[in-house]
């Protein structure tokens, strides 16, 4: 009688537990990536053997993500935490990593994967670093995923991490990485040729986030609207910038989709520079959900903006 009673009441409970814990039995390797760029690299290398969860979607500003406790749920189940690093996620990742209490992804463990390790980092501050300079990143500019050549190295980092936690998938990961790298190596020269006519052209950017892209394409950022990172610009700086842009005939004012563009539209009108608002990460727009499509879009948009500027 008691057994029957208990069974009747426990079965629904067991069923509910099975439903809520269903995601726990999905892929071979569960990867949590802090940004959509990192996620995209792991998805390409891991293929169907991995389940990738992205915290900062492509249309979100990864500097300012909120440390939602629900992210802890994702990290709690993760085999790998892959992050951009260089203090991009410093305002939120430490809290959720601590809250997850998942030793597989703690610092020093095989599942703890900073993606910047093999890369040449730009703008590492020399000498004293102070907050008087704004919200500077003392380890260098963290927006390295905007150079497609860096994705080649990131793919190697991803493959090494996946092999560490899932050695059986090694040959699959090697094959996926090779295919991804080949595709990038084929496309990069095409993209470079497309923008070659505009090498050395000046550009003004809103935030210091396009350096890797501009460095790759040999375009020259002459100044920034946000002259101190993370700090809204003063009217005096904007006025001075407006004068310089007119004097130098800057053709493009470059910003990203997560920046308010009201002020930039006014600056564009006053200077004649074309306001180009680009997605700053894979997945910022629905059709740009993988790296090759994303970089192709950036190149097309830049080329069109320069062509517009030349014809004016």
């Amino acid at each position: 009688m008691h057994v029957e009673y208990a069974t009747k009441r426990l079965l629904p409970l067991v069923a509910i537990c099975a439903v809520v814990s269903a995601p726990l039995q999905a892929a071979e390797v569960r990867v949590v990536a802090t940004t959509s760029d990192v996620a995209a690299v792991f998805q390409r290398v891991g293929g169907e053997r991995v389940e990738v969860t992205t915290l900062a979607k492509g249309y979100m500003d990864p500097h300012y993500l909120q440390a939602k406790p629900s992210y802890i749920v994702s990290l709690r189940r993760a085999d790998i935490l892959a992050y951009n690093g260089l203090q991009l996620e410093i305002g939120w990742l430490p809290l959720i990593l601590q809250g997850a209490r998942n030793n597989k992804i703690n610092l020093g463990q095989p599942g703890h994967v900073p993606m910047s390790v093999r890369l040449d980092i730009l703008e590492i501050p020399i000498g004293e670093v102070s907050r008087a300079q704004g919200d500077v990143h003392p380890e260098g500019n963290p927006h390295y995923t905007l150079d497609p050549r860096n994705l080649i190295e990131m793919a190697s980092t991803a493959e090494a991490a996946l092999v560490r936690v899932d050695p059986e998938g090694g040959s699959i990961y090697a094959g996926n990485r090779a295919a991804f790298v080949t595709q990038l190596q084929e496309q990069i020269p095409i993209w470079e040729r497309k923008l070659a006519p505009y090498r050395g052209r000046p550009i003004v950017c809103y935030h210091k986030q396009w350096e890797y892209l501009l460095n790759w394409l040999e375009l020259v950022p002459i100044d920034y609207v946000e002259n101190r990172p993370g700090i809204p610009p003063s009217p005096r700086h904007v006025e001075e910038l407006e004068r310089r842009m007119r004097e130098q005939g800057v053709p493009i004012l470059l910003s990203s989709t997560f920046i308010d563009s009201d002020q930039l539209e006014r600056l564009s009108e006053k200077t004649g520079a074309k306001l180009l608002v680009l997605p700053a990460a894979v997945g910022a727009e629905e059709e740009l959900d993988e790296p090759v499509a994303f970089f192709a879009h950036l190149v097309e948009e830049l080329a069109a903006a320069f062509a517009d500027g030349s014809s004016d």
């Binding site: 809520v20 629900s70 802890i72 749920v73 189940r77 997850a100 209490r101």
Partner: peptide, 12 residues
Amino acid sequence: ARWVPPLSWFFE
């Protein structure tokens, strides 16, 4: 002591 059970939402 804190415990986060393996649920699909956050519960501590």
